[in-house]
Structures are given as structure tokens and as C-alpha cells.
Design a protein around this nucleic acid. Structure first.
Length: 823
RNA sequence: GCGAGAGUGGCGGAACUGGCAGACGCGCCAGACUUAGGAUCUGGUGGGUGACCAUGGGGGUUCAAGUCCCCCCUCUCGCACCA
């Protein structure tokens, strides 16, 4: 035993002990309630950063707390280990991606994460770049292919020139690549897609059931899915007789259509302008718009431009002829690529009409404003009464929406339709370090899925990476050449790999039975552990990973492998770790290295500080001095416990007989407070401050020396303190727990319960106010009645002074707390 | 523009259903022990050196407002030509 707090010795000792004794290894135990606590697994970049430390510290406190509360806790960790950085390292330094990745994993696990004292069941480690994992990506792909949920199509896709690969819509932020920030180009390619849109309705509807998710994440998901309900209406093109179909959510304004606009890519465009004098001008316009970058074109500040095609179409509601324009703001990928334009009731159409001198017609009136098309300065987009709309006049426009939709359907000029902003998930990547897509192409039989028995399609490890040319796999002859599973003839393999977000879309299921080799996971094990009770990670995945994982879970359910609908019941999005008010970054030079903190202060201090400085959902301002404070606190506790450990060793903790003792009361108040702070919103910062208060009180209590009769109360206080600290500073608590004479790990010790009767105060401190201002304080015996409070307050000398002989108008008594005398 | 969240000491942050604003920590000041301390312990610490003013600003409700209501300002994040 060492009386000096040597964190290095303590932490190494307990890390070894947990490992040797397999303290955190778990299995399915139907007799216990399970708790699945999961932190988003990291990409093995080579080093952890403070954001990881914070994320894992939060998850570890929750896991350790739940374990002490008697739950069977699944707390796994793994590696999201396919991805571009490994390939870039290979190109730059000539290290094979697999070597680079596996070495990083070993380093991060053994030298970094293990030093943090995290209570993971390492027997369940999942590494997505290994064949025993990614073969199941391929298996899911084939299952989805069989069900029409994986398909290939030619389309415009997002192309990052710097990463030399296609990106999913979710991976483009403000027109820039989410990973490297390059401007994303538009490219027409044949690509594999997962049909996430087949689940759009359910993904949206289930948002309402995710009550344990932050509202803003749900809002972001709802926005991303973007459901809009409206109608498609056919306008007949004059002359050709072809139908130009538009989508609108504002069918109540159909009578106000004064022109139409179609996307520059619209397939009907050529037919519209053929042989017209406008054709040349239109083609020039289209060419100019299409040559623009997608980011530029969809920028909000982009000037709305258009050109008249020379063609007219007929509004089927009023048989009016309206000109058809091409607009640079009309998107081919949304709706039908053609819109009706109602300048009076749509701001964008209004501005466009003003610019090109097109007419404005009011069809929704506001009684007070008295709208006049000639004098309007902006579109009227609010509700009102229908006007100029034939038999729909005088209806409220909300009402007319339904009526017009009915009318359109009856006349067979259109149908009710739902449009989604959500697009199918493009998963092809022209990169090497990912899961090969299990498809071969045969000249006779076409695209053929690789039979299940031939899985996995192994990623060859001897591919030269140059960073130039085509996808690296396309350069590998041995990989490329294959045999058609159907006819046995020569065929070539698909050389694209899957988006790495596929890997992270089901890893939480794999943790349930990571060694299962006949299926992606064991159904029974998943039935026991799933869903994840608490998921913790950064907000940056609010749409990406979290949406894909929800989609995959629903697919897995429909494959009959899992009985739930949603993967994550509760989601905690932790804030960033910042320094000097900014996110830590190399360029700003404000990065704090976890290794340095661990060497100087130890894991328990690092954990304690990061949990104490801010509540988990908020940003955490890193403070070196704050770390000192956490370190000091541990020293204070250590010194205190050691000072009394010999005297306390054979003392039994106090029981109900000690009710009334101030320290006993503080002990139980602290148990209550810490427990509630963890249970309610995981507010560890206030839980730790309660522990600090208790330690301060312990110092007071023991400052004059401790008599023998005080030992039981002191013992119960120190026992409780150690237990309450265990989730936050686990090594530290283990060591003190042993010093106090315990022989089994504190990790499995039961969490203390507070004694409700022990926290009842023997005296009340009553605040006395005169006219709402605090003027005095009274100490009265507990349980004093309202009448007694009032009498005592009125008899108080300060109150009498303030009353100056006047009679109180009213006296308000808040039971056991406060008296307010109103004059 | 729309949506969400937030504005409290020198700083990070407390204050659960309206009831002592500033818990706890950092920093700072003073003292003790010390040859010495950037170690440790003890005390103090919103402003103004009286009864007053203070939770972004302005109104309101109430005996009582950081907390509830109305108006406004600022910041952060997300979405944003979606028809």
C-alpha cells in the first residue's frame, strides 16, 4: 500500500486485473435485465483525440453505473476500418492499407483505449475490414439484390475529383465532399444503389416513436427524408399533343398558372423546341447551365434565369394556353422536372415573372389586404379565399386543395402523389479499400450475383496503389477475371467497392454474436441484446450513419433476422471538445494530445475532468487548469481515505441508528443526488460536484480528529463515496475499495441506495421575506407548522424593523421553506 | 427565410414542478505550515464600500420571475431554389 496517489501504478494494476479476470466479459443471461450501451466505433486513423476520450468516458460511466445497478451490460468496441485514409497512406508511404490499418488498430487499442480504463468486452471486438465481417456486407447485398433493394442504374452522381470516387447525396455538404471539402462534380455513371426510398414512409413515421432521440436530430432526419404531398397534373403541349406532367403541392393555385418551367435536362425539351426559331437560344442556355458546377447551380444566391421555348401548354383546369420556359432553378431529380408557375402565390415564381415580364394572377384573396396583381410587391403565400378559380371560388384554399385534387383525379388529368427528397443510396465507390461488390458480369447472362457459397469475395491484398487511373481493383487482372455462376463462361468481376457506411449500418448487430460464422449474427443473441439502449456519438452523423443504420435495421427485420424496428432507443449526441473557443485542429494549433494528459495526470483525472467541465450534450471547453482541479480532487480523496483506512478497516458501516448525524445525512443526500443526476439526462457534471461537496464536508468532519464512536458513520460515508466515484474514476475507486478491506472488484459491487429517513433534516432554515426581499433567516425545528412559521417570522426583530409598525396586508407561507410578509 | 438550441460573475458552469441567483470547479486575494514553493491546508471572492443594482434588452403576470406571457437583439447549429 502506498500512501501517495501514484496513478500510473494504480491504473496499470487494475487494467491488468480487469483483463486477466475478464471482469467485463458478458454473455446472454435471461435471468438478468440486459443493457446495451454503445459508443460510435472509431475509424483507426492511428491516434485517438479528445473527442474520442469524451465519447468513451461518457459511455463508460453509463455502462459501469448500469452494471452496479445489476444490469447485464453489453459494452463493446470495434473498428470502422475500411476507408480512404488507409489508401492515401499507401499511396504516400507505400504501406499496404491492411498493414497500416491493423497496426493502427493494435496501437489504438493497446496503447490508447486500454489506458483509459474503459469497461469493454474485448472478446466481441469487430473489425470491419476483415473477411469474417465484410463477407456479411456481401451477403446483405445479395439478399437485397434478390429483393430488388439493390439495383444498378445509370444516373447523374456526385463525383469527388480529389477522392476519385462517387459520393452519396448524404455525403455532399454544401456542394462539397464531406471528407475532403473538394467541390463535387456531376457525372453520369452506372452505379449500384440501395433502395432506401422503399422505406421512406416508415423511416419518417418511426421518427415519432424515437422519443429518446434529441429533437434536432429527428428534425434533421425528417427534413432529409422530405415528404411532400401533392398532385401530378398533365398539361397538354400545344401542337405535339404530348403530356407535360408537373408536380405541385399547391393545386389550390392551379387557376393562377401563368407559365411553366422545365429543367434544362428535361427529356421532352428537344421535342418542344424542334424547328422553332427559339431553338438556338434555348440550346445555348441549356448548355451553359449544364456546364456549371452543381454546387454553383444550386447555390441559393444563383440568379434565377430562364428562356422561353416557344412552346405552349394547356392548363387542363381552365384550358388556358401558357408559355413553357426552361429554368435554371428547376431540378430534374425532384418531382417530374417540370413545374407550373404561379407568380401571385410563390415568391420564386413572382421574381421570375417580374424579371421576364410575365403576367401575375391572384387566385387566393385576402379580405383585409385586398390583393391586386398589378400592385403586389411580393407573392402572397398565406391562406385565403379562392378567387378566379371557377367553381372553387369562395372556398377556403385549404378546403379547395382537397376538392381540386378530387377533381383532377375524376377528370383523369392527374393523380395525388407523394414526393420525397430522399434519394436512393448510391453505394458504389471506385476505390480499393472497401468491401468488393459481389457481382460478376457475363456477356451472355448479364450481371449475376455471386452465389452465397462463394462468399466472401476476398479483397486482394497484392494490389498496387498509385492514386492514378481507374479504380485499383480494375487494374488487377486476377481479381477482375471471373467465371459466370450461371453459364460457367468467362466473366468479369465488379471492381467497385461498397461505401464504408454499409459497414457501420449493422455492426451493432454483429456485436451480439461477433464470432458467428453461419450468419451475420445469431438471431437469438440479437433478440436478447437488441435494441441498443443507449447510443452515444457526435452530431455529425445525424443524417448519414444514423439514417443508414435505421434503414438497414428495417431490412434486417424484413429478412426475418430481427424482431425490432429501430436499432437505437436512446441517442446522446455529445458536444465537441473545444479549446480557446474553437474546435481542436492542427491548423489552429490548439490540439490537446490525450497521450500527454494520460501520462501527466492519468486516465481517472482525464475522465473526471471531461465529465465535470460540462454536461455531455454541450461543447466542452478544455482547460489545463481545470484538469489540475480534477487531479487535486482525487488527491484530496486519496489522502482522506488513507488517513483513516487503518482505523476503518474493521469497522461496520453505520445503519439507520445513525439517522440524525450530519455526515450520515450528507452521505445519503449525496447518494440520492448522484443517482438522480445520472438517471436524469446523464448530468455527470453536477453529480461530480455533489461528490466534491461531500468530500469538503468529510474534511470538516474529520478536521478535529475522529473519535471511535464516529467511525461507523465515517465508514459508511467513505464506502458510499468510493462506490459513487467508481463509474467516473474506476481505477482509483478499485484501489481504495481494496484499501478499505474489500476483496472483490468494485465494478460489480451494488450501487448504494439512499435511506429516505436519513435525509430528513432535524431543523429547517426558513427564508423570511418582506415584500419579496430576503430580510432574515430563521432556524426552526423540523415539522413546524405553517402557523408557527408565520408567528416566528412576524416576531423576528428584522421583520419588525422593516414593518415599522405597519400591519401586514398578507402573509404567504411556503411550507417548510419561506415566509413572505407583504405590507 | 425556416427549424432547433443558447445568452447567468474574470472563466467553465449550478439553480428538478416560479420560492435564498451564482452550487461545484478554475482563477484571484489573504493567512497557516515552510529556507522555499507553481505542494498542501484554512478563510475570502458578482457589482456598488449603508437599506441598492444584477441572469442579452424592453414590457407584463405574480406576494415572489433566470424560470411563465408578449415584443426586440445577439450567437451557435441544421435546412434552404424541393415546386
Amino acid at each position: 500500500m502506498d500512501e501517495r496517489y501514484d496513478f500510473k501504478k494504480v491504473e496499470e494494476r487494475w487494467q491488468r486485473a480487469w483483463q486477466e479476470q475478464k471482469t467485463f466479459t458478458v454473455g446472454e443471461d435471461p435471468s438478468k435485465k440486459k443493457y446495451y450501451c454503445l459508443e460510435m466505433f472509431p475509424y483507426p486513423s492511428g491516434r485517438i483525440h479528445m473527442g474520442h476520450v469524451r465519447n468513451y468516458a461518457i459511455g463508460d460511466v453509463i455502462s459501469r453505473y448500469k452494471r452496479m445497478r445489476g444490469f447485464n451490460v453489453l459494452h463493446p468496441m470495434g473498428w470502422d476500418s475500411f476507408g480512404l485514409p488507409a489508401e492515401n497512406a499507401a499511396i504516400k508511404h507505400g504501406i499496404p492499407p491492411s498493414k497500416w490499418t491493423l497496426e493502427n488498430i493494435a496501437f489504438m487499442r493497446d496503447k490508447q483505449l486500454n489506458r483509459l480504463g474503459l469497461s469493454y468486452d474485448w472478446d466481441r471486438e469487430v473489425t470491419t475490414c476483415l473477411p469474417d465481417y465484410y463477407r456479411w456486407n456481401q451477403w446483405f447485398f445479395i439478399k437485397m439484390y434478390e429483393r430488388g433493394l439493390a439495383y444498378k442504374k445509370l444516373s447523374y452522381v456526385n463525383w469527388c475529383p480529389s477522392c476519385a470516387t462517387v459520393l452519396a447525396n448524404e455525403q455532399v455538404e454544401d456542394g462539397l465532399c464531406w471528407r475532403c471539402g473538394s467541390v463535387v462534380a456531376h457525372k453520369e455513371l452506372e452505379q449500384w444503389f440501395f433502395k432506401i426510398t422503399a422505406y421512406a414512409e416508415e423511416l419518417l413515421a418511426c421518427c415519432d416513436k424515437l422519443t429518446g432521440w434529441p429533437e434536432r436530430v429527428l428534425t434533421m432526419q425528417r427534413n432529409w427524408i422530405g415528404k411532400s404531398v401533392g398532385v401530378e397534373v398533365d398539361f397538354l403541349v400545344e401542337g405535339t399533343g404530348e403530356k407535360l406532367t408537373i408536380f405541385t403541392t399547391r393545386q389550390d393555385t392551379l387557376f393562377g398558372v401563368t407559365f411553366m418551367s422545365i429543367a434544362p435536362e428535361h427529356p421532352m425539351l428537344e421535342a418542344l423546341i424542334k424547328g422553332r426559331k427559339e431553338a438556338g437560344e434555348v440550346r445555348a442556355f441549356v448548355q451553359r447551365v449544364l456546364s456549371e458546377d452543381k454546387a454553383v447551380r444550386t447555390d441559393e444566391k444563383q440568379e434565377k434565369e430562364g428562356v422561353f421555348t416557344g412552346a405552349y401548354a394547356v392548363n387542363p383546369l381552365n384550358n388556358e394556353k401558357v408559355p413553357v420556359w426552361v429554368g435554371n432553378f428547376v431540378l430534374m431529380e425532384y418531382g417530374t422536372g417540370a413545374i407550373m408557375s404561379v407568380p401571385a402565390h410563390d415568391q420564386r415564381d413572382f421574381e421570375f415573372a417580374k424579371k421576364y415580364g410575365l403576367p401575375v394572377r391572384v387566385v387566393i384573396q385576402n379580405a383585409e389586404k385586398g390583393l391586386n396583381a398589378g400592385t403586389m410587391t411580393e407573392a402572397y403565400t398565406e391562406d385565403g379565399i379562392m378567387a378566379g378559380s371557377g367553381k372553387f371560388d369562395e372556398l377556403s384554399n385549404a378546403n379547395a386543395k382537397d376538392k381540386i385534387a378530387d377533381f383532377v383525379e375524376e377528370r383523369k388529368i392527374g393523380t395525388r402523389t407523394v414526393n420525397w427528397r430522399l434519394r436512393d443510396w448510391g453505394i458504389s465507390r471506385q476505390r480499393y479499400w472497401g468491401t468488393p461488390i459481389p457481382i460478376v458480369y457475363c456477356d451472355t447472362c448479364g450481371a449475376q450475383p455471386v452465389p452465397e457459397k462463394d462468399l466472401p469475395v476476398l479483397l486482394p491484398l497484392d494490389v498496387a496503389l498509385t492514386g492514378k487511373g481507374r479504380s485499383p481493383l480494375a487494374e488487377s487482372k486476377s481479381f477482375r477475371e471471373a467465371v459466370c455462376p450461371k453459364c460457367g463462361g468467362a466473366a468479369r468481376r465488379e471492381t467497385d467497392t461498397m461505401d464504408t457506411f454499409v459497414d457501420s449500418s449493422w455492426y451493432f448487430l454483429r456485436y451480439c454474436s461477433p464470432k458467428e460464422d453461419g450468419a451475420p449474427f445469431d438471431k437469438k443473441a440479437a433478440g436478447y441484446w437488441m435494441s441498443v439502449d443507449q447510443y452515444i456519438g457526435g452530431i455529425e452523423h445525424a443524417v448519414l450513419h444514423l439514417l443508414y443504420a435505421r434503414f438497414f435495421t428495417k431490412v434486417v427485420r424484413d429478412l426475418g433476422l430481427f424482431d425490432g424496428d429501430e436499432p437505437f432507443l436512446n441517442l446522446l449526441t455529445q458536444g465537441m471538445v473545444i479549446k480557446d473557443g474553437a474546435k481542436m485542429s492542427k491548423s489552429k494549433g490548439n490540439v490537446v494530445d490525450p497521450d500527454h494528459i494520460l501520462s501527466k495526470y492519468g486516465a481517472d483525472t482525464a475522465r473526471l475532468f471531461s465529465l465535470f467541465a460540462a454536461p455531455p450534450e454541450r461543447d466542452l471547453e478544455w482547460s489545463d487548469q481545470g484538469v489540475d482541479g480534477a487531479y487535486r480532487f482525487l488527491h484530496r480523496v486519496w489522502t482522506l481515505v488513507y488517513k483513516h483506512s487503518a482505523a476503518l478497516r474493521n469497522v461496520q458501516p453505520a445503519g439507520p441508528g445513525a439517522r440524525g448525524d450530519t455526515l450520515f445525512r450528507k452521505t445519503h443526500l449525496t447518494i440520492k443526488k448522484v443517482t438522480e443526476d445520472i438517471e436524469r439526462e446523464f448530468h455527470f457534471n453536477t453529480a461530480i460536484s455533489a461528490l466534491m461537496e461531500m468530500v469538503n464536508e468529510l474534511y470538516d468532519y474529520t478536521s478535529g480528529g475522529v473519535e471511535d464512536r464516529q467511525l461507523p458513520v465515517l465508514r459508511s460515508a467513505i464506502d458510499a463515496l468510493t462506490l459513487l466515484m467508481a463509474p467516473f474514476a474506476p481505477h482509483f475507486a478499485e484501489e481504495l475499495w481494496e484499501v478499505l478491506g474489500n476483496t472483490s472488484s468494485i465494478a460489480n459491487a451494488p450501487w448504494p441506495h439512499h435511506d429516505p429517513e436519513a435525509i430528513v433534516a432535524s431543523e429547517l432554515t426558513v427564508v423570511v421575506q418582506v415584500n419579496g426581499k430576503v430580510r432574515s433567516k430563521l432556524t426552526l425545528p423540523a415539522g413546524a407548522a405553517d402557523k408557527e412559521l408565520e408567528a416566528a417570522a412576524l416576531a423576528d426583530s428584522k421583520v419588525i424593523e422593516f414593518l415599522q409598525g405597519k400591519q401586514p396586508k398578507k402573509v404567504i407561507v411556503v411550507q417548510g421553506k419561506l415566509v413572505n410578509v407583504v405590507v
